[in-house]
Simulated scan of single mutants.
Amino acid sequence: MRFRALAGGIAVIGAVLATALSGIAQADPSERGTTSAPLTEMRTAGDKGWFYTARADEAVTAEKAHGFTDATQVGRIDLAPTEGSNPVHRLRLKEGGPSYMLSISPEEWKSPKFVDEGVAGYLDGHEDSGDVGLVRFSKDGKWRVLTDTPANVENMKNAGYEVDGPLGWFRP
C-alpha cells in the first residue's frame, strides 16, 4: 500500500516536471536570431590567449577584474536554442593560459585539458540564405573565432593559425 502511494506520488511529480520543462525546451525556429547578442572577443592578460562572451556584464568584469583588453565584436550568437542549433561551449585551458576556446564538440567539452565553463550561446548547425559562418582557428594553445570570409581565413593562415573548421552560422 505504501509502495503504491509512493509510486503514484512520484508519477505525479514526474508529470508536473515534464509539463513545466516542456515550456522551456526551445525557442520558435521562425524567431531564429531574434534572441541573439554580439559575440565579443577579448585579448587575455599577458597576451596568452583570447576570451569570448555574449554578455556585456561579463566583458566589463573581464576587463576590470582580469585585465582583458581589445574588446571586438566578431559575430553574433543566439542566447536560446532553436530548432537545428548547436550549443557552443566556452572551454578554458587548464595550463598555460588564460586561453579560451569555443567548441561544439562533446569530446572537447570532456577533455582533461580544459575546464568547461558552460554554454556561451547557440549557433545554427546549417547555413541558410543570408547567414554568416563562424570559423575557429588554432595556434600554439590559442584559439580564435572569426567570420568565415576569404580575407579572415587568409589572414589567419598567414599568421600561422590552422583552420579548425566551422562552429556554425548566425543571422546578421
Rank of each mutant, 00 (worst) to 15 (best):
M1Q: 14
R2K: 15
F3G: 13
R4Y: 07
R4W: 08
R4V: 10
R4H: 06
L6S: 11
G9F: 11
I13G: 11
I13W: 12
I13E: 09
G14K: 11
G14Q: 14
G14T: 13
A15T: 11
V16L: 13
A18M: 14
T19C: 14
T19K: 05
G23K: 10
I24M: 14
A25C: 12
Q26R: 14
A27G: 14
A27L: 13
P29W: 03
S30N: 14
E31W: 06
E31Y: 08
T35N: 13
S36D: 10
P38L: 07
L39I: 11
T40F: 08
R43Y: 06
T44P: 00
G46M: 04
G46S: 04
G46E: 06
G46F: 07
G49S: 02
W50P: 06
Y52W: 03
Y52K: 02
Y52E: 00
Y52N: 00
A54E: 00
A54I: 02
R55K: 15
A56S: 10
D57G: 12
A62E: 05
E63N: 08
K64P: 05
A65F: 01
H66F: 11
H66T: 01
G67F: 01
F68P: 00
T69P: 00
D70Q: 11
A71P: 14
T72Q: 14
Q73K: 12
V74P: 05
I77K: 02
P81F: 10
T82Y: 15
E83R: 11
S85N: 07
L93P: 08
K94C: 13
K94P: 03
E95R: 13
G96A: 02
S99R: 04
Y100R: 01
M101Y: 09
L102T: 06
S103C: 06
I104R: 12
I104M: 12
S105Y: 07
P106T: 09
E108L: 06
K110Q: 15
S111K: 07
S111E: 02
S111Q: 03
V115R: 13
V115S: 10
E117Q: 11
G118P: 07
V119M: 05
A120T: 15
Y122W: 13
L123V: 09
G125K: 01
G125W: 03
G125P: 04
D128H: 15
S129C: 03
G130P: 08
D131H: 04
V132I: 14
V132W: 08
V132N: 01
G133K: 05
V135R: 11
V135H: 09
R136K: 11
F137V: 05
S138T: 15
D140K: 08
G141H: 08
G141R: 04
G141F: 03
G141S: 06
R144D: 14
P150R: 04
N152C: 04
N155M: 10
A159W: 10
G160T: 00
G160M: 09
E162H: 08
E162W: 08
V163P: 05
D164F: 00
D164G: 01
D164H: 01
D164L: 08
D164S: 01
G165D: 03
P166D: 05
P166C: 09
L167S: 00
G168V: 11
G168K: 01
W169K: 01
W169R: 07
F170L: 05
